[in-house]
Write a protein that binds this DNA or RNA. Structure first.
Length: 419
RNA sequence: GUGAGCGUAGCUCAACUGGUAGAGCGCCGGACUGUGGCUCCGGUGGUUGAGGGUUCAAGCCCCUUCGCUCACCCCA
């Protein structure tokens, strides 16, 4: 007997009724994003490796050790996208979107790939729902993007989520702070972990959100990033906060929040959720005012976010989940001479009228058919026997109440179509 | 990449110091041949993740490997 095959490590099948939940979440995203003027973009899953090296940053963990990179048959280095902002920026440049009405507002959804050790809330193939606003540097755009995000989450039924917020300043501020941090930590290099000692050279900011207690203490004594901020970034951040206050967005400034992707400038944010274990970020994002230029395009600023759909669905409010997973509404059973064919005929009449219907085609007894209707979660059972067929009628039984009556077929179709 | 724990039916789990692989749920059917949910009865279900070793005998012990889970790391 041949060995059984399984899905590859870190990937999984999504099955019904779970897939209905995913579809419902995506439907809400499309609906909310459309209200804010965002249109869908679909970029390839496969990109040139160079895009992520330049866009996301060579020193990042994502690029340095987590990419699915391989050579194609012509020897070109290709990578399965580990995130989508770089792809959107590439598409922006490639299609000359700077000449589209500004700002350009795009959303995307789809699978992303990172070669990491799987864990609660962490998969090698995971899914993101993201949005990008390109072409406006102002704090009003930061605020609007966050308002859209918060509205999306609240329409899914989430409450009590807090946006963690910080600013990284412009390029100069970041460079200055990098040096300040390095100067502060260098004397204590002995106390740092191996990883952090390496980061001291490559990317000292990353040490800020280390979870090691010893390093946290060292970091607590470090000068705040705020001290190095340029005046414009400071103003920008103050404006963003003022706007969020005005719209009642629940947020908290988190001075040690830095992000692992190199393209971020100024505003960065994150939303975490309880109940996810160590991988508790369900949203991450920020401003990236230099990314498009770094990819060879015009100097166009941008801001965006990515939602971890797998994690989001892990902690989705139960009410939304139940609503989404509801299935067929009418179960059609036929007995006596009528049989499966008549059940099929009536089911087709219902479907024609837009009603979800399942027909009992297996020739089971009525009792068995009713049992199936019940287990399948049907709202009504439609029973067709010799009498009903002869009279052009059908017996409709509402399963929850047990009430039933015989009505003309056409009338039944109309009534079920309304319900 | 590092560390720890765990792999027995579709699911949740039993099986003494090694001695004939079980239950509940699910699924299918019957009791009830035109009426579901409750109840009762029956049926369906397994190379005990895979491979090797020790032994008269391995689900249990040893080795290898794959996978899952959690944490580090990183991020969505």
């Amino acid at each position: 007997m041949p060995a059984k095959l399984r899905s590859v490590k870190g990937t999984r099948d999504l099955l019904p009724p779970e897939t209905a939940v995913w579809a419902a979440v995506e439907e809400v995203a499309r609906d909310v994003f459309a209200r804010y003027g965002y249109a869908e973009i679909r970029t390839p899953i496969l990109e040139e490796t160079e895009l992520f090296v330049r866009g996301v940053g060579e020193a990042t963990d994502v690029v340095g050790k987590e990419m699915y990179t391989f050579a194609d048959k012509k020897g070109r280095s290709l990578t399965l996208r580990p995130e989508s902002t770089a792809s959107v920026a590439r598409a922006f440049v490639e299609h000359g979107m700077q000449s589209w009405p500004s700002p350009v507002k795009l959303f995307y959804l789809g699978p992303q790939f990172r070669y990491e050790r799987p864990q609660a809330g962490r998969y090698r193939q995971f899914h993101q729902i993201g949005a990008e606003l390109l072409g406006d540097p102002g704090p009003w755009s930061d605020a609007e993007l966050l308002l859209m995000l918060v509205r999306f989450l609240s329409e899914l039924g989430f409450s009590g989520l807090t946006v963690l917020l910080n600013t990284l300043g412009d390029e100069g501020a970041r460079a200055a702070y990098r040096e300040a941090l390095r100067a502060h930590l260098e004397p204590h290099a002995e106390a740092l972990s191996e990883d952090s000692r390496r980061r001291l050279e490559t990317n000292p900011l990353r040490i800020l959100d280390s979870k090691l207690p010893a390093e946290r203490e060292l970091v607590a004594g470090a000068p705040p990033l705020e001290a190095c901020l340029d005046a414009e970034s400071r103003e920008h951040f103050a404006a963003v906060r003022r706007l969020l206050d005005r719209f009642g967005v629940d947020y908290r400034v988190e001075p040690r929040l830095v992000r692992g992707l190199d393209y971020y400038t100024r505003t960065v944010f994150e939303i975490t959720a309880a109940g996810l274990g160590a991988q508790d970020a369900i949203v991450g994002g920020g401003r990236y005012d230099r990314l498009v230029a770094d990819l060879g395009g015009p100097a166009v600023p941008g801001i965006g976010f990515a939602i971890g759909e797998d994690r989001l669905i892990d902690v989705l409010p139960a009410a939304f989940r139940e609503r989404a997973a509801r299935r067929e509404t009418v179960h059609v059973a036929a007995v006596g001479g009528a049989g499966p064919e008549e059940a099929l005929v009536f089911a087709e009449e219902l479907r024609q009228a837009g009603v979800a219907a399942a027909a009992e085609l297996t020739g089971r007894s009525l009792g068995a058919a009713m049992k199936r209707a019940d287990r399948a979660g049907a709202r009504w059972a439609a029973i067709l026997g010799d009498e009903e067929v002869a009279a052009g009628e059908v017996t409709l039984r509402e399963l929850a109440t047990g009430e039933q009556r015989r009505v003309a077929r056409r009338e039944a179709v109309e009534e079920l179509g309304r319900a």
